[in-house]
Nucleic acid binder design. Structure first.
Lengths: 188, 188
DNA sequence: TACGATAGAGAACGATCGTTCTCAACGCAA
DNA sequence: TTGCGTTGAGAACGATCGTTCTCTATCGTA
């Protein structure tokens, strides 16, 4: 049983690497098997279909994302600093050599028309993150309208950094967020 | 010869509809043939490979995008209004029933790892649009740093509207852009 | 040692894909 | 009319995919 969860973890992490690097549809189940060192039989015992594996990978990505956001927020004292620390997290991520965009956005673009489960998982992630931003915006004493604006900046920074291969999108978005927070603060 | 350009147009438009609705990899060349009413032989005479067809579709999308942006800018008097009219264009687009994201971002997520030509075409489009924004920001008398910030807002509004199915992302991004322009104006 | 369940390796299956080829129908110059 | 080049319809090809099945080796238990 514990070796089942071991195999499960190895599978999800291997699939995550391959899917993110090459795209979901470009990776066959046999490549996942080779990367994870888990037999096809076991793969299909743990995940009834490739779609289920994709959803599991997205859930795994969500945990990684949440952990990274939480870690960078931990060093910040105020809600405003926690909010802005998201952009520092993005900055470090954009500089990783194999970064090429938000996995959720990429998968959404690839499969949104075909897989309901995938679409829903992506939506859940983005909704949850919007709530996270909204909470911090409220705690920072800024008006509620600022929250979706900052969330849009975070979203846009990711696609801009990926397509233009420009990690500076993080700093640019952060500067914009500061302007938005300051303008809201002085208006309130 | 003119019927070649006719077939070419029908092909690109048909492929555009199918690719955008279902994703590029989910659409076979035979489906394109059926939708366009052009024989496979002629398709491969006009486009040596599917990749070439995809690039042609992206170029066609770019022309549509530029035309739409230009049309909404035409009604605006000042550079600032032209800039903000982009968000009105987005607003109308997001409300179209079959809208589901920026085709460039979607295709990038789907094929960036596999097709060099596609990646490059997406990059060209985004670069060209960033220049368009930068020109308007300069003409509006705002500092240059505001240009990438507004471009990031436009990018983020598109993915947010697609994933969250919320056309209000256009209005939210527009409000943020106004704040950024105003803050820059008062600082200058 | 013998036996039954289990699991891995990988062949097999049916479907689909991008691309090419075949063949018959057609249009047009001589 | 004859012959030739071109075209379209669709079969064919080779590759790959997700998924399942077969076969064999292994291992715990009696």
């Amino acid at each position: 049983m514990t070796q089942d969860t071991d195999a499960r973890e190895r599978l999800v992490e291997a699939a995550d690497r391959l899917f993110y690097a090459r795209g979901v549809q470009a990776v066959g189940m046999d490549a996942v098997r080779a990367e994870a060192g888990v037999s096809l039989k076991k793969i299909y015992a743990l995940f009834p279909s490739k779609d289920d594996l994709i959803v599991a990978v997205l859930r795994h990505r969500r945990e990684q994302w949440n952990a990274g956001i939480a870690a960078s927020a931990e060093k910040a004292a105020t809600a405003r600093e926690k909010l802005l620390s998201v952009f520092d997290f993005l900055d470090a991520w954009f500089r990783e050599p194999d970064f090429h965009g938000c996995a959720f956005i990429n998968v959404f673009g690839e499969l949104s028309a075909g897989s309901e489960g995938v679409t829903q998982t992506v939506r859940e992630q983005k909704e949850a993150f919007q709530l996270y931003v909204a909470d911090l915006v409220r705690d920072a004493g800024a008006p509620a309208e600022v929250a979706p604006q900052i969330a849009i900046l975070i979203e846009g920074a990711q696609t801009t950094a990926a397509i233009a291969r420009s990690p500076e999108a993080a700093a640019q978005a952060k500067a914009a967020a500061i302007t938005l927070l300051d303008a809201a603060g002085s208006a309130a």
